[in-house]
Computed example of a mutant assay.
Amino acid sequence: MTAGKIRVLLADDERLLRAGIRLVLRHAEDIEVIAEADDGSQAVELACQMPVDVVLMDIRMPGTDGLTAAEQMAERAPGVKVVMLTTFGEHDYITRALRGGAVGFILKDTGPQELIQAVRAAAHGGAILSPRITKDLIDQHVTTNDTRTTEARRLVSDLTDRERQVLVLIGLGTSNAEAARRLYMGEGTVKTYVSRILAKLGCANRVQAAIIAHDAGMLPTR
């Protein structure tokens, strides 16, 4: 991303949803919606032709869907950060989207401030998963077994006390900004801890780290 405003492309076939997101982002002085698309192929072409920093893209659209469009953008416009817009319960798509180049998922009913923070985080290289998505992923994909528990506990045993605190917040789906507030740390410091934790655990992303935290018994039970 170059200096100046974060340039956003909205890709969703629901005109009212695009209007709502555009209205929310208009309140952020550092963000500008520069284009809109109502199908995936149009979004890909716009991302290739215009100086787009972040694409907010619906998963399900007529013609080329959002997942396919994200994969095409990764090849044709690799500098563009794609954040998928989803509804609760569509989490089977997450693995494919993250592998295809998307940097995160947010729910369509995400609050205005969370949406703005997600755009900022994506523009600056962060990964975004709504807390509810993180928790649901863990519930769906983690099964309790002694081997997984033993391995997870072995991995986290190498973490410092502060790294463990940050890992718990990752497991709860907390953003870097919220983790910084809870731990009385700078957001940049939290980002450093997150990178260090992922490296120590051998994780490619925050979801994998969250699953390890769950397997190790570090997360509060419901």
Rank of each mutant, 00 (worst) to 15 (best):
T68V: 15
T68M: 12
T68P: 07
A70V: 12
E71Y: 02
E71L: 08
M73R: 08
M73P: 04
A74Y: 10
A74N: 08
A74C: 10
A74K: 13
A74I: 05
E75S: 13
R76N: 10
R76H: 11
R76M: 13
R76G: 06
R76A: 14
R76Y: 08
A77K: 04
A77I: 04
A77T: 05
A77L: 08
G79T: 07
G79N: 14
G79S: 11
V80F: 08
V80Y: 05
V80H: 10
K81T: 05
K81S: 14
V82M: 04
V83A: 12
V83N: 08
V83K: 06
M84K: 07
M84R: 01
M84T: 04
M84E: 00
M84S: 07
L85T: 02
L85H: 01
L85P: 02
L85A: 07
T87Q: 14
T87P: 07
T87N: 14
F88K: 05
G89R: 08
G89Y: 04
G89F: 01
G89M: 06
E90V: 00
E90H: 06
E90M: 09
E90C: 00
H91V: 14
H91K: 13
H91R: 10
H91C: 07
H91M: 10
H91P: 00
Y93T: 02
I94P: 01
R96Q: 12
R96I: 11
A97W: 00
L98A: 03
L98Y: 02
L98H: 00
G100S: 09
G100L: 02
G100Q: 05
G101W: 05
G101L: 01
G101M: 07
A102I: 04
A102P: 10
V103C: 15
G104Q: 05
G104W: 03
G104A: 09
G104D: 06
G104C: 07
G104V: 06
F105G: 08
F105R: 03
F105M: 08
I106F: 12
I106R: 07
L107P: 05
K108R: 13
K108L: 05
D109F: 08
D109K: 02
D109R: 01
D109N: 13
T110P: 03
T110S: 15
T110M: 11
G111F: 06
G111S: 10
G111K: 11
P112F: 01
Q113N: 11
Q113K: 14
Q113H: 13
L115V: 13
L115S: 06
L115D: 03
L115N: 09
I116R: 03
I116V: 13
Q117L: 15
Q117P: 04
Q117W: 11
A118T: 14
A118Y: 01
A118G: 09
V119W: 01
V119N: 03
V119T: 13
R120L: 02
R120S: 06
A121H: 11
A121L: 15
